[in-house]
């Protein structure tokens, strides 16, 4: 049957696109990327940012998220792209949005995307892993074995069952430092690694699993993983991935090879370049692929709330029955708290 179209004018056109770099810090590292997306959509509304909406019966805000850090991992370099119906000063958008987000989901930088969407991919991430109870020397030896191997298959339990991935294939570089006194109870191995974006994705935890396969490491607590930066991967970076490039755990901070991808020049063709990652890498652009899947996913309620509710909900006293008639008003968006000046 013909699908009905909502009455009223179509949504306001997009006049500006912004790329936002944000962090997931502290206890917010336990948020999933759906949680983060939901928080950001609410923050955008709360801050009064004039976000564009899709057309249709249940309009979605036009926000695209690029490969979010996994649940449990912190990040200093998450990216999203947002489409606006009114032109705004990027820095001001960053300020008001940051104020409307929960502590720990923090806006770092906002820049305008000029003209067509940026095409360069965020091809790799730099990760830091704090691994409690693991001796740096032992971790360095494991890294050496791992890097020397042609491949390192590990298994991960996903929602679709057990998956096998080659952890080695994704690793561009890997170095180990020591925190705390060697041999003491407080000793931690600090790993720094540059990991390629791949399909299926290789996560830092996969690499740690591979390291544990390579040698017996006994962490005293789960690792604390932080994404430090994201950006394109320069060809030059590949050379650091060779065997033997893992430094011994000397305990000297920075004794590992600087992630050479960091020195990658911005592609001169990239006019939309707007974000400079503070760390070693340059995010010259944001993946153009709009992550529609994710943006829709954040709108889904728990598949069917009633189905999952306690029995009490159906008893005569729990008359808080599920929503009957929910709808969206969707004429042209106008904004009460954003002025032109």
């Amino acid at each position: 049957m013909a699908r009905q179209q909502p009455a009223g004018p179509p949504p306001a056109p997009i006049v500006q696109r912004l790329t936002i770099r944000y962090a997931k810090r502290g206890r917010m590292r336990f948020a999933s990327h759906r949680d983060v997306a939901r928080a950001i959509e609410r923050g955008v509304r709360k801050a009064g940012v004039p976000v564009a909406y899709s057309a249709g019966f249940s309009p979605h805000p036009k926000i695209s998220y690029v490969g979010g850090a996994p649940t449990g991992a912190a990040s200093e370099a998450e990216y999203l792209e947002i489409s606006l119906t009114q032109r705004c000063e990027p820095a001001e958008v960053g300020r008001v949005l940051d104020g409307a987000l929960p502590d720990g989901i923090d806006v770092i930088e906002v820049a305008e995307v000029d003209g067509k969407l940026a095409t360069a991919q965020l091809a790799a991430s730099e990760w830091e892993v704090v691994w409690p109870g693991v001796a740096a020397d032992a971790a360095a030896r494991a890294a050496e074995v791992f890097l020397a191997a042609p491949s390192a298959e590990v298994e991960r339990l996903t929602s679709k069952g057990l998956r096998r991935v080659d952890a080695r294939a994704a690793v561009v570089s890997l170095s180990v430092e020591r925190r705390g006194e060697a041999g003491s109870a407080s000793e931690c191995a600090i790993l720094r690694m540059i990991v390629r974006q791949m399909t299926p994705a290789v996560r830092p935890e996969d690499i740690l699993a591979a390291l544990r396969q390579a040698s017996s490491l006994a962490p005293s607590a789960p690792p604390v993983v932080t994404r430090l930066s994201q950006g394109p991967l320069a060809e030059a970076a590949e050379v650091t991935a060779g065997p033997g490039s893992a430094p011994a755990g000397s305990g000297e901070p920075g004794s590992g090879p600087a992630p050479s991808v960091g020195q990658t020049a911005r592609p001169s063709t990239d006019k939309a370049m707007c974000l400079t990652a503070g760390n070693a890498m340059v995010a010259s652009a944001v993946q153009a692929r709009a992550n529609e899947q994710l943006s829709r996913g954040t709108r889904d309620r728990l598949a069917d709330p009633r189905a999952r509710e306690p029995y009490g909900r159906d008893c005569p006293d729990a008359r808080n029955r599920a929503t009957e008639s929910t709808t969206q008003f969707q004429r042209s968006t106008d904004w009460t708290r954003f002025g032109p000046q």
């Binding site: 032109r87 705004c88 000063e89 008001v96 106008d334 009460t336 954003f338 002025g339 000046q341």
Partner: peptide, 25 residues
């Protein structure tokens, strides 16, 4: 009705390219 602030952008604001975001309370 809630008073809508800044509903109509100042003429020419779209083209000038140097608008400043105003958050009105």
């Amino acid at each position: 009705p809630l008073t809508v602030l800044g509903r109509t952008p100042a003429p020419g604001a779209e083209q000038s390219g140097d608008e400043v975001l105003a958050v009105v309370g």
